[in-house]
Amino acid sequence: MKKILLVCSGGMSSAIVVKSIEGEAAKSNLDLIVKAIGSGEYEDEVGNGWDIVLVAPQIRHRMKVFEGRAKELNIPISVMAPMEYSPMGGKKLIEKIRNMF
């Protein structure tokens, strides 16, 4: 089982993407725990045993801040591409997640 953390501005739009990932993961029998948070919760949440961090494209200008903390904890982190970050982007994101393992 892998734990995936999604970060966006307020944790709202990423919640939509979480649904899309979960749907696709169920189809391909992938055991994932996916959670959406707002950037304000990142500092406190990222240390709670997450395996992968995915950052929403609209806050990619803050990547340096997110990256710094993830590197300290040795967690792979990546920005989602615009077309991945949509209700229909789950499939592409699953591929991306697989490549990050």
Binding site: C8, S13, I16, A56, Q58, P82, Y85, G89
Partner: peptide, 22 residues
């Protein structure tokens, strides 16, 4: 995309359209 974005849109969440349309 329109169907998937309608409910979020009514709630003023538009990342699906901005990145989906794009």
């Amino acid at each position: 995309l329109g169907k998937a974005s309608l409910l979020p849109g009514i709630c003023n969440i538009n990342e699906p359209v901005i990145f989906g349309a794009p």
